[in-house]
Each structure stands twice: as C-alpha cells, then as structure tokens.
Amino acid sequence: MSIFSCNQIHKSYQTGCLKHTRKKALTDVSFQVKQREVFGIIGLNGAGKSTILKIFMAFVKPDKGTVSINDQPVASKGSHQSIGYLPEHPSLYPHLSIKEHLQFGCRVAGLSAQEEKKRIQTALETVDLTEVAKMPIRGFSKGMTQRAALAYTILLKPEILILDEPMSGLDPLGRQLVLDIIQEYHDRGATILFCSHILTDVERICDRIGIMHQGQLVSVVTADSLDKDYVSTSTKGSQTPLEHYFLNTVRTEIS
C-alpha cells in the first residue's frame, strides 16, 4: 500500500499582471511512496519541489493528474487526518507565543485539557524551547522559529510527515535536532516525504531519492544503489555519492 501517490500531475502558474504568461511548474510527475519510507526530493531552486509538497497538502490544485494520500484523494475529508506539515519558510503568527500555537493545534484536534498539556510539554521538550514557550514568536531567531514550527508539526505525533526544506537556516545543532527527529519518526514507522537542497542530509536519512529538474522528476534512485553506482564509476573523491549522481543527472539534462 502506498501512502503518497501521484499520477501524471501537471501544474502551471499564471503570472504577469494580466495573468497572460503561464509558467510551467510541474510536467508529468508520477511517483509512489510506500509506508515507513523516507522519500527525499532534491533539485535546484525552482525545480518544483515545494509545489509537489503543496499539492499533497491540497494548498495547490494540479491542472491534470491524480493525487492521493492513504489511497484517499487529497482535499477529501479526512485525507489529512494525521499529517504533520512543515512549510518552507515556517511563518507562525508573530504576536502569539509558541504555546498558543500548540494549544490551537490541540484544540482543533479536540484533545482533552490533560492530554493537551502533556502533548505541548513533549513537543516543547523535543525542540528544546520550553523556556521561551510564552514569548511571542516575533522575538525568535530564525533557527528558533524553525524549531518552533517543527514542534507545531510534530505536536500530534503524526504518522505522515511532509517537510519542506526542514534544515534550511539552522545551525549545526539545529540540523542535528531535525535529523534526530526524522530518524526517530522513521524508527517509529512514520512515512516521511521531504525536500531539500542540502544533499548530505538527504543522503543520510533517505531510503529513496527523487531528483527534480525544471518541473520534471528526472530520476528516482534508492540510497543503496547510489553507493554501488558511486563505487563503480566515481573518481572524484571530493564528492559524496549523491552529489556525484545529482550533478551528473542535472548536467545531462541541461546538455
């Protein structure tokens, strides 16, 4: 059974002041992600990584193609029951505290007061923000905001995670924290779909990797095959296997 599934999706945005130019964002993208799998999407800026994630979140509707989560079409009722989503530039309400955000999350889910307290505490401890729980987000540094958003994402212990550039803007400590969380969820059996352009991180945690270029999913590889491929062909010791593969793929596409 596949958790994420998309079939031949196309998407273009209309731009310009009269909406006259269409900019292609995605062309014929199809892939499946099985349960308990960590699927990473990598690509250059503007390759369409975020758009795929937003389509799965039903923020954006594809022009063509079918998208489903847990075998339910997205945007249908209940398809987003147990998803944690971390947006690219996590923007929380600047005047509210992280605690209020978490409270909101619990209330929407209809948790009891006791459960609410417990969940909030766990989430705060996980991201190490307990001390600033009552400060407005406005005063947070970029890294703190990112961690706060992460706490909000994992608040309800979701079985499915969609992370859009979870490591961007974090210091090494913060990056490790995110990696740990992903690892923990992976061990617990969660399915994770995420995108990034920090290749080393992707390499460390992904089971499978999709490479996007100019709106197309040009290649999907498993982490294992990558290593074999690298050993057999590479001569450049300065690159990791994924970097080598990615650059090769993208260069082939360009030429």
Partner: peptide, 14 residues
C-alpha cells in the same frame, strides 16, 4: 502573504 495560513490549514481544517 506571509503564509501563516499554512499553519492553520495544515491541521486538517477545511
């Protein structure tokens, strides 16, 4: 504009 709407809509909110 600031995409705070994702914070809300990510929560299974119609």
């Amino acid at each position: 504009e600031n995409r705070t709407i994702y914070t809300l809509l990510a929560r299974n909110i119609s």
